[in-house]
């Protein structure tokens, strides 16, 4: 599955459009991680636990999006956008969407 955040896939031509595909996941923080991040919050700098958590979540959202595109028969997703929103205390939704296409 080719994913790109521009309207086309460079070096390839789009032969068919399938429409919008989305992938999302809502994640809450692990209590241990939250505690460590709380400590790290005192001295500042990178909160590695959160970076990893969000990275995993975003990878998952992208994978779900790719799966939806695959089920339509597409081999690429173009113009991918991300959005993150805090839906509840200590939980975040990571959302990825794009247009499923067939390229060659």
């Amino acid at each position: 599955m080719i994913v790109s955040n521009i309207e086309t896939v460079p070096g390839k031509t789009i032969i068919e459009f399938y429409g919008v595909v989305t992938g999302s996941t809502v994640r809450a923080k692990h209590i241990g991680r939250d505690f460590m991040a709380g400590l790290k919050n005192l001295v500042g700098g990178e909160l590695k636990g959160y970076t990893e958590l969000l990275h995993e979540a975003r990878t998952e959202a992208l994978a779900r999006m790719a799966k939806e595109a695959q089920s339509m028969g597409a081999n690429a997703v173009v113009n991918v956008r991300f959005s993150t929103s805090s839906v509840a205390q200590g939980a975040a939704e990571l959302f990825a969407y794009g247009t499923a296409v067939k390229v060659e």
């Binding site: 994913v3 700098g45 990178e46 909160l47 990275h55």
Partner: peptide
């Protein structure tokens, strides 16, 4: 968005990089 026309692109894919940071207590 566009690639200069004389570039021969053979492969393309999405790449990401992310980081979560916070300020220290004093700041």
């Amino acid at each position: 968005r566009s690639v200069p026309s004389d570039w021969q692109v053979t492969e393309a894919n999405l790449v990401t990089g992310s980081v979560v940071v916070s300020l220290d207590y004093f700041k």
